[in-house]
Simulated scan of single mutants.
Amino acid sequence: MSTPLRVGVIGVGMMGADHANRLANRIAGAQLTVVSDPRADQATAVAQQYGARAEADPLRLIAADDVDAVLIASPGVAHPEQLLACIAAGKPTLCEKPMTMDSESSIAVLRAEAAAAEPVLQIGFMRRFDPGYVELKALLDSGELGRLLLLHNVHRNKQVPNPDFRSEMIVRDSLVHEVDVARFLFDEEITAIQVLSPAPSSLAGAGVIDPQVAIFTMAGGGMVTSEVFCNSQTGYEVRCEAVAERGSVIAGQPWNTLYRTTVDSVAGAGGTGGSVGRWGGRLPDDFTQRFARAYDIEVQAWVDAARRGERIGPSAWDGYAATAVCTAGMQSLVSGERVAVDLIAPPGA
């Protein structure tokens, strides 16, 4: 393809608007042409800002002649219909996680793509494109540290602005990233999950279990612990420690880019003064800051592949497998028990 890839964005809330800005200003070989959102005023404002047009119906956006590829950032409940339309249209599609809200709808999407002429779906697990996680994966694959035994994940949000945010959303919408990280780094499936419920923060919503701790059992016997805390108040903090036979390594430390020490003055007893040393760096406020580079790399790689007529990155199978683990995780959230993860055979296997 010698001309720019004309991209339509479905859903221009916080994530979709960030992608619209990215496509318009930072991605080579792409042109933002159409945006769609149930809030007509929001769609119109974003479209006018970037010289695109607004389309009320997302299915019309998918079918539009001025859309070569589709980026889906709508709520997960809308994904099945939109993904099936993209598959039917044969248009390259980057869909933000989760692929769908439950295993059954993910299987329907997976099978529809398998029956199509070519795979078109890439699922938005952007950590696979984050430089730190990419470096960690390469180190583990090199064999230098021996066999991977354990992962320890931390995933903290400063706060959740959604007043309707519930406990199960922590599993389905947040923990899903740790699910994909575990599958990516171990290069194998998760066979069981247990979600534990510590005493909740007083700053979480009424009845919301936050934080949560999940334990994954991997197919090869490895284990993964994942803390997800959506109202930590301190900032957006995501990191992963891999423990292998001959060493350990951490990706995502907040001082990877800047670590500093400083001295603060303090008042002493009897009016005397003094000082205290402090160390650390600044935590980002949200995912658009922490993973800005990862999103740029992810979307650029998707655009480049689409222009070549190829598909790269996390597949529909990866989206389905993550959804299946989270479906089992929501069962465990209720019972507190370990729940087995049952996956179908990959289409065509």
Rank of each mutant, 00 (worst) to 15 (best):
D304Y: 01
V12Y: 04
R53L: 04
I209F: 03
A324I: 05
L283Y: 08
V134C: 06
R293I: 10
V228K: 07
Y295D: 09
P92H: 07
T234C: 09
T288E: 02
Q122G: 10
D102H: 11
D296H: 13
A73N: 15
A114P: 03
E241H: 03
E168N: 13
G143P: 01
L61Y: 08
T327A: 12
L84I: 10
A294Q: 06
P163Q: 04
D304W: 03
G252W: 00
T191I: 14
E189F: 00
V208D: 00
V120L: 04
G90N: 07
Q48K: 07
D37K: 09
S315D: 09
S315E: 06
V35M: 00
A267Y: 09
S103G: 15
S315R: 12
E337C: 02
F216P: 09
D141R: 13
V67R: 03
V334R: 14
F229T: 02
T100G: 04
D18M: 10
E118Q: 15
L71R: 10
L110A: 01
E188N: 06
I193M: 05
A54Q: 10
R22E: 11
S265Q: 13
L94C: 12
A328V: 06
L258P: 00
A47E: 01
E310D: 15
L196C: 09
R290G: 05
V176C: 14
A89H: 07
Y320V: 02
R260S: 15
G348N: 05
Q31E: 14
A324Q: 07
Q82H: 13
S74C: 14
A199C: 01
R127F: 03
G205H: 11
V34I: 15
R246C: 02
A30D: 09
L139G: 06
A294P: 06
R127A: 05
F186Y: 13
S232T: 02
Q331P: 05
A28N: 12
H152I: 08
G313L: 11
R290T: 05
V276C: 01
E188Q: 12
A138F: 02
F129R: 11
A114W: 10
D57R: 12
S226L: 02
G124V: 06
M169A: 06
T191G: 04
F165P: 02
A306W: 06
F184D: 13
A116K: 07
A340K: 14
A54V: 11
N25Y: 00
F184N: 12
R183M: 14
